[in-house]
């Protein structure tokens, strides 16, 4: 009887302490709840109205707005006398490493508005991990509802060689020579995702556990637990095949060519967001589009001793830092202002 009483006390105190920790972690933004959700008409989406504070390379503060995209909230309906820009790309465009006010979206919107003397609205549709087909599907399924005047598509070389496919992100295919977005998500995967998505959406601790599980898919469990002892016994863990930097066979697929062929040359601007220039084959594919290459600007900044992708606090080299965002905004403002004026 006494043992049972102690077990009950144990369970009760465990649950209460966990709730206290959950409240503390949530209110101090130590960790976030999951931002991901699933919409059968779009695929994987961001949840709406979820503020976040993320520590990765830097400190990102912002919010997924009521429409599920990042930054300042603009509804699909728009005024005629405005210039609306859709920013599309991967984690560089999402820019979760800096505060909203330091993101190039804010700086560009303000700068371009002043430069052109009219209202500019920049909507950030950046999604980490997205490659060209993912962006295309997202544009067709969702971004077009916001009727942008210009689509700024930020790309790097590997976006043209899509490799990784999340089964809950729509696949872009060629059917009888026509581009088609496959919205038939595997039922089992959808069911499974819908079952497991709820706890991390409502608990920071469960979301941290989920992140931990994801981490074990990127690096061996042994290297997390054993620190450098792991490297005494086994070789250094290598990056997984699905890492964007991974090399693979480089053949531009027909789907990618068809996507580029399908995009409106008057409305789409391609921007190389990488430190390295795009290869000549890719640049050739983009002939006819306005093309802005950020790489010489980024390289110049690096040579001047202010690397746009170095994060001294975490010691990482990764996404654009504060200086990088300022530079990107400045270059885009100059390039776009001259062609829009």
């Amino acid at each position: 009887m006494n043992l049972l009483k102690q077990i009950l006390w144990g369970i009760l105190s465990f649950v209460l302490t966990m709730l206290f920790c959950e409240a503390f972690i949530w209110s101090s933004n130590i960790a976030n709840v999951s931002f991901s959700d699933f919409d059968p008409e779009i695929g994987k989406v961001n949840r709406q109205d979820v503020p976040f504070l993320i520590f990765n390379e830097g400190m990102g503060v912002g919010k997924y707005n009521a429409y599920g995209y990042l930054g300042k909230e603009y509804p699909p309906y728009r005024e005629d006398n405005t210039l609306r820009l859709a920013l599309m790309g991967d984690s560089y465009v999402a820019g979760l490493q800096v505060m909203g006010r330091h993101h190039f979206r804010s700086i560009l919107e303000k700068g371009l508005s002043e430069n052109l003397g009219s209202t500019v609205e920049a909507l950030n549709f950046g999604k980490p991990g997205f490659d060209l087909p993912d962006m295309y599907a997202f544009k067709e399924n969702y971004i077009d509802r916001f009727t942008p005047d210009l689509y700024l598509i930020f790309v790097a070389e590997f976006d043209f060689y899509p490799k990784v496919t999340d089964v809950l992100v729509p696949d872009v295919k060629l059917e009888n020579g026509e581009l088609a977005i496959d919205m038939d998500f595997p039922e089992e995967a959808v069911l499974r995702y819908n079952q497991i998505k709820v706890p991390p959406q409502h608990s920071t601790i469960l979301n941290m556990m989920n992140n931990g599980l994801k981490k074990t898919k990127q690096v061996p469990l042994g290297s997390i637990l054993l620190d450098k002892v792991y490297t005494w016994i086994w070789e250094e863990p290598e990056l997984g095949e699905d890492h964007p930097g991974a090399t693979g066979e480089k053949v531009i697929s027909d789907v990618v060519k068809a996507i580029i062929g399908d995009l409106d040359k008057e409305k789409v601007v391609f921007i190389n967001r990488d430190m390295e220039a795009l290869s000549p084959e890719i640049v050739e594919l983009l002939v006819g589009f306005k093309y802005i290459d950020l790489s010489p600007h980024l390289q110049k900044m690096k040579l001047e001793g202010k690397s746009p992708i170095d994060w001294p606090i975490t010691g990482r080299v990764g996404h654009w830092n504060h200086e990088g965002h300022k530079l990107v905004a400045k270059v885009l403002e100059e390039e776009l202002a001259s062609s829009l004026r």
Partner: peptide, 21 residues
């Protein structure tokens, strides 16, 4: 003692979860 163990397990669990990720 049950309550002490429950509290300590929760604190250790949360700390380990954070450390892991």
């Amino acid at each position: 003692p049950g309550a002490i163990i429950g509290i300590l397990l929760a604190l250790l669990g949360v700390s380990f979860i954070y450390m892991f990720q």
